[in-house]
Design a protein around this nucleic acid. Structure first.
Lengths: 199, 199
DNA sequence: ACCTGAACACCGTTCAAGT
DNA sequence: ACCTGAACACCGTTCAAGT
């Protein structure tokens, strides 16, 4: 199989894999379509056959990021541990992902000028649905209203997202972030499970 | 005063103001030194006299962002309202800033590859110190330990940061973000003020 | 001290042409 | 259907030269 044949039909996948690596190594600004083409051994115009422009490639990276995070969160929920243990583990998994792939996380939660493409929105939606599944693990008995579950989910989401951002921006260390997640999850769980729930 | 004389001595300020506007209009990627020079009526090499490179200008924008946010938060704390009202108001002010200047906020909390410059770190530190002042408004009587205050501050910080990110990324609406801030601040305040504090 | 303008290397994007 | 390669416009950065 020659190098030419290797890229017959899977250049798209090669470009995405190399782009993910490049994202980790030099950040979003360092991603160049021409450099990507060079590394894949094709001409600089070749990527155009798979991505209409640079932003389309970045959008696809974001979509894949959401899918990978979804998988990671679902794995963290698989075990049959007590609810609060699962709750903690999912939160730590989320922050771990966000810190390890900080540049990717920025793409996933970028404040775009225009509306985000539907395929990213859908991937993000699937990720957020894992939070619903998580909450149902501990509250599927009808104690919490749908509204309460939704608010609980948002509290959970913003805590992890904020911790991830402050850790990636080096405002706090990973250890402080982990301790913070423990504090926050304990607080949220207490609010959700105590007799006179305020949530 | 001719256009030539106008830029004598304040090109730096003009560039920064135009860059801030450009940031809001077209985002970070849309900021071009050459376009900035064009708008300021100087040659494309002129910005070099004030910013060593493009990143240095973006760093300065981030620093100014922290300073402006610090001012806004301090203004929100000025009034002599009950503590919980002040707490809420500061939180809403933070998220309001973050949503209005979402692109700037990304610059301020960017996950850089290298270590952030000291002048940004210092500006960020001053901003976070307003949280200490805020907490001392309600807990300067020695009830909370220094460690508890620190953890309270982090809980507060990540809640706002996460809400800001999810709102800017259009995962939730501004109204949902505001309701979320109310939920979270109530939860945090309760944890900080109840007799058997868990914080 | 600050600004000009040519020069250089590198981009993203387009598109007719090849296979 | 996918890739090539020339062409175009636009960058960031450098630097000798001006004032």
């Amino acid at each position: 199989m020659t190098a030419r044949a290797f890229h017959h039909g899977n250049l798209r996948a090669v470009l995405l894999d190399r782009a993910e690596a490049m994202l980790r190594e030099v950040g979003t600004d360092g991603i160049s379509l021409r450099e990507l083409a060079r590394q894949a051994g094709v001409s600089h115009g070749a990527p155009r056959s798979h991505f209409i422009d640079r932003q389309a490639l970045l959008d696809t990276l974001a979509e894949r990021g959401f899918d990978r995070l979804t998988d990671k969160l679902k794995s963290s929920m698989a075990a049959g541990d007590p609810f609060d243990a699962t709750f903690h583990r999912v939160a730590h998994a989320y922050v771990e992902f966000a810190v390890q792939d900080a540049a990717l996380m920025e793409l996933m939660f970028a404040a775009k000028m225009a509306d985000p493409p539907a395929h990213i929105q859908n991937a993000a939606e699937r990720m957020f649905q894992t939070f619903d599944e998580l909450i149902d693990l501990g509250h599927s008995d009808g104690v919490l209203s749908a509204d309460a579950k939704y608010r609980l989910k948002l509290l959970f989401a913003v805590t992890m997202q904020g911790t991830a951002t402050l850790t990636a921006a080096r405002r706090i260390t990973a250890a402080q972030g982990a301790a913070l997640i423990d504090d926050a999850t304990a607080l949220i769980l207490r609010a959700a499970t105590e007799p006179t729930s305020r949530i």
